[in-house]
């Protein structure tokens, strides 16, 4: 509010503009530091590799890796191979995250609002939650067979627990004043749920979705390591087994890109869906 009225007045006094400049400088500095550190790491790696300080067979220099990635991707076959693996992984994440997040949010909201459901489900949910989900993977294979279904099911489970527990506690522990307002003004139930409880819990729900997406990535790659013919995890594992280190790093880079995209989507959802929520 203050900022826009200053700007609208068109008369920033010197103090204000100095402050704005200082703030901008700080932002630029932090951005440069944030970019600078990984660049520094890559440079150090490059130098170490070139001077044979590390074993080039396992740690080829970043520039060699980059060159071989470019070469690999310049062929149609190479492109098809990589895109195929990416597609397989994204499909598993998409199905798992879609089902897991939807059911997690719905059941979390019901648990937050409905005492008996909460009493029935919460102990089981909290008991299973800490178990590493990858440990259930053999069971998933027994139930769903080898292939896409079992890895999607594993992702679904991981995402479900993350979103369900976060949504549940978000709804359960909303600011009591909102409940008081709903009661004092005799809101109808559907208004109470959709326009008070869910938006009030939205910051926690988004956190759950973000954590769930991270979890999905971890689980899908792990599952692909263990049993899959396709997927980025399989790609990384195969590359390692034939000691094609450059290709392995390409797989890792793809995972990084997925994670970065997930974080970006999370930030976007945060600014769009909960603009009032300051972090």
């Amino acid at each position: 509010m203050t900022q826009s009225s200053l700007a609208a007045g068109g008369q920033l006094d010197e103090f204000a503009s100095a402050q704005l400049r200082a703030r901008r400088m700080l932002r630029i500095r932090n951005l440069l530091l944030g970019i600078g550190f990984p660049v520094f790491l890559l440079l150090a790696w490059e130098i170490a590799a070139n001077f044979e300080l590390i074993d080039k067979r396992f740690f080829p220099s970043p520039s060699t890796i980059f060159a071989s990635i470019v070469k690999f991707l310049s062929t149609q076959a190479g492109q098809n191979l990589v895109y195929g693996h990416m597609e397989a992984t994204l499909k598993r994440i998409g199905i798992g995250f879609g089902i897991g997040a939807t059911s997690g949010v719905i059941i979390g909201v019901i648990m937050g609002l409905h005492g008996p459901t909460r009493a029935a489900l919460a102990p089981t949910l909290y008991a299973i939650f800490p178990m590493p989900k990858i440990a259930i993977y053999p069971l998933m294979i027994v139930i769903f067979g080898l292939g896409d279904a079992s890895s999607s099911a594993l992702v679904t489970l991981g995402v479900f627990f993350m979103t369900c527990i976060n949504t549940f506690s978000g709804v359960r522990y909303i600011n009591p004043i909102f409940r008081d307002v709903a009661n004092a003004f005799r809101f109808p139930s559907f208004v109470r749920w959709l326009q008070v409880s869910v938006p009030a819990a939205m910051p926690a729900i988004i956190t759950g979705l973000r954590l769930g997406l991270g979890q999905a990535l971890v689980l899908v790659i792990s599952a692909e390591f263990v049993s899959a013919d396709t997927g980025v995890g399989r790609f990384i594992w195969d590359s390692w087994q034939v000691l094609d280190i450059a290709r392995m790093f390409m797989g890792l880079a793809i995972v990084l890109i997925f994670a970065g995209t997930a974080a970006f989507i999370g930030n976007l959802a945060e600014t769009r869906l909960i603009p009032w929520h300051r972090r």
Partner: peptide, 11 residues
């Protein structure tokens, strides 16, 4: 009722 604290719905 008008409550003591902020009771507006921020969304």
């Amino acid at each position: 009722t008008v409550f003591q604290g902020d009771s507006t719905l921020p969304w």
